[in-house]
Amino acid sequence: MFPAAFDYIAPGALDEVLSLLSQHGDDAKVLAGGQSLIPLLKLRFASPVIVIDIGRVDGLEGIRQENGHVRIGARTRHRDVESATDLRGTLDVLLDAAPLISDPLIRNMGTVGGSICHADPAGDWGAVMLAVGAEFVVRSSGGERVLPAVGFFEGPFTTGLHADEVMTEIRIPVGAGRSGGTYLKLERKVGDFASVATAVHVVLGGDGRISSAGIGLCAVGAQSIKATAAEAALVGQTPSDAVIAEAARLAGAAAEPKADIRGSAEYKRDVARVFVQRGLHTAINRAQGATA
């Protein structure tokens, strides 16, 4: 199994990438880590005329905290998020999700931005980004746009990214308050896509009430889903089993799964509920244990 023939270019500067993209449009594919794109090429589901490798462009990697944001370069490898242990306490959900992405070798090559732009409804980062309220910085030769994660995922493998744009950075707001989160994933084995996964991120106010809550659902719809009703049911509440159970019920109701070899729609919906329930308990315990 190998790709159909294509032209290849690996520019050293982002401007050159953007100019090539504006020139080739839909005929071009951007190659970052390649862990989603190369399988598509090998299966000949994608046959671009030209592959533009951004692997040699400086400044697209790394994780840093500044101005109330965690900023992740779009070409940062999953493996580097996995080892960014200083995110523990602020963005637990990222640290819990990263090691569950595919397998260790894929995480050494695959990139966060590449995975988000690929927008597989069973991709893990989508649900995480919805839960933490991320924004995506995208560039074209025409300039820069900042797109909120909410609304970015339009359908299976479809996003708000234009054909002439490249994602350069993921920005995640980290505000005041004690936060906690987690990512729970049901997979059939290591390396599998999620059958169901849920990302949960909560922030507690000084009074112990939930000041904000983010819940993202993975693999239970045409795209990653933000469980807004469940989030709303949490905000302003003092955490309790009843509050959590109700939010979990609402999250399950927000899932729109389809039956397949991994299980019935009913099954997936209920696992989403169970995982959100468990995830909220973990997230809140972590937040309560954290110092603001």
Binding site: M1, A10, G34, I38, P39, K42, D103, L105, N108, M109
Partner: peptide
């Protein structure tokens, strides 16, 4: 062929990767 088995594993700058899912030009 689908990056599931790892029989094609090599080290790229010291880190293991699946060489069936890497283009040779990428590692120039």
């Amino acid at each position: 062929d689908t990056s599931n088995c790892g029989a094609c594993t090599v080290l790229l700058d010291g880190r293991p990767v699946k060489s069936c899912t890497v283009l040779a030009v990428q590692v120039e």
